[in-house]
C-alpha cells in the first residue's frame, strides 16, 4: 500500500490528477490553454516585429551609410551581449517610464502599456538583433553574380529585392530563422519573471494553488515541446519548398 501510494504520488502528486486538468470551472485546462494561446500570440507578433527589424537592419548593415552600419552594429552587439532577462526587465520598466516621462514633457497624458504589448515589443527588439545577423548572413551568401545579373537587366532596387534577393536568400535564412522562432517561443517564458501571466506564470499559479507542482510543470513542458516539434515540422516543410529545384547540399 505505501509503495502504491508512492508511485501514485510520483506520477501525479496527489489524487484528483486527471480532473484538475479538465476544461471545467474546477479544472485548470482552460486557463492553461488560454495562457498557451497568449504565449504563442506574443511569440508570433514578436517574431514578426523581429523579422521587420531584421530586414531593415540587414539591408542597413549591407547597403547603409557608414553611420547606419555603426549604429546597427552597436544594436546587435549590445543585445547579444546582455542576457535577455535583463533586457526584458530594463525595457519593461525603463521603456514604460521613459516613454511616459517623454509624453509628460510633451504635455500628453501618460499612457499605460499592457503586458502583452510590452512583451511583444521587448521580445521583438531582442529578436530584431538576431534576425539582422541571420538575414545579413543569408543575403551575403547569395552568389554575387545573381545580383549583378539582376542589376544588368535594369531591375529597380525594389524589384531586385522582391524577385532575386528575397527568394534566393530564403533557403539560406530559413534554418537560422527557424532557430530564432524556437528561441522566441521559449523566450516568452521569461515574461513570467516580470509578472505577466503567460503559460509559465499561469502554470506556476496553478501549481501553487493546487500544490501539484510536478503535474503542472510537466504539462507546461509538454505544451512547449508540442509547439517546438510542430514548428520544426513546419519549417522543415518550408525549407524543402524553397529549396525546390536546388541541388542537394550533401
Amino acid at each position: 500500500m505505501p509503495r502504491a501510494f508512492f508511485f501514485w504520488g510520483i506520477m501525479a502528486d496527489k489524487p484528483g490528477f486527471p480532473e484538475i486538468l479538465s476544461f471545467s470551472p474546477t479544472g485548470y485546462g482552460d486557463e492553461l490553454a488560454w495562457a498557451a494561446a497568449i504565449s504563442i500570440s506574443i511569440a508570433i507578433l514578436a517574431y514578426a516585429l523581429g523579422l521587420l527589424i531584421g530586414i531593415i537592419g540587414a539591408l542597413g548593415k549591407l547597403g547603409g551609410s557608414e553611420l547606419t552600419q555603426k549604429v546597427l552594429h552597436g544594436y546587435t552587439t549590445l543585445v547579444r551581449a546582455v542576457p535577455e532577462l535583463i533586457l526584458i526587465l530594463l525595457l519593461f520598466y525603463a521603456g514604460t517610464s521613459g516613454l511616459n516621462a517623454l509624453l509628460a514633457e510633451a504635455g500628453f497624458e501618460s499612457i499605460t502599456i499592457n503586458g502583452f504589448i510590452a512583451g511583444v515589443c521587448v521580445l521583438g527588439f531582442v529578436q530584431g538583433a538576431y534576425s539582422t545577423e541571420v538575414l545579413r548572413a543569408a543575403i551575403q551568401a547569395i552568389p554575387i553574380g545573381q545580383i549583378e545579373a539582376a542589376r544588368a537587366y535594369g531591375m529597380s532596387p525594389f524589384l531586385q529585392f522582391r524577385r532575386i534577393t528575397l527568394p534566393a536568400m530564403l533557403s539560406f535564412a530559413i534554418p537560422g530563422m527557424a532557430n530564432l522562432w524556437l528561441i522566441v517561443t521559449k523566450g516568452t517564458a521569461l515574461l513570467a519573471v516580470v509578472g505577466y501571466t503567460e503559460l509559465t506564470l499561469a502554470t506556476k499559479q496553478a501549481a501553487g494553488n493546487t500544490k501539484m507542482y510536478f503535474t503542472f510543470y510537466i504539462v507546461a513542458g509538454a505544451i512547449y515541446l508540442c509547439v517546438t516539434l510542430l514548428s520544426e515540422q513546419g519549417f522543415g516543410w518550408l525549407e524543402r519548398r524553397v529549396r525546390r529545384g536546388q541541388r542537394a547540399l550533401t
Binding site: I20, P25, T26, G27, Y28, E31, I38, I111, T112, N114, F116, I117, G195, Y196, T197, L201, K204, Q205, A206, G208, N209
Partner: peptide, 25 residues
C-alpha cells in the same frame, strides 16, 4: 488583451496569497 483605458488600475501581485488574493480554477 488591452481593456478600456481610464479605469483605476489596482495592482495585485501575480501569485497565490490566500486568503487575501489568489486565482481560482
Amino acid at each position: 488583451a488591452a481593456p478600456a483605458m481610464a479605469d483605476l488600475k489596482f495592482g495585485v501581485a501575480a501569485e497565490p496569497y490566500p486568503p487575501f488574493s489568489s486565482k481560482d480554477a
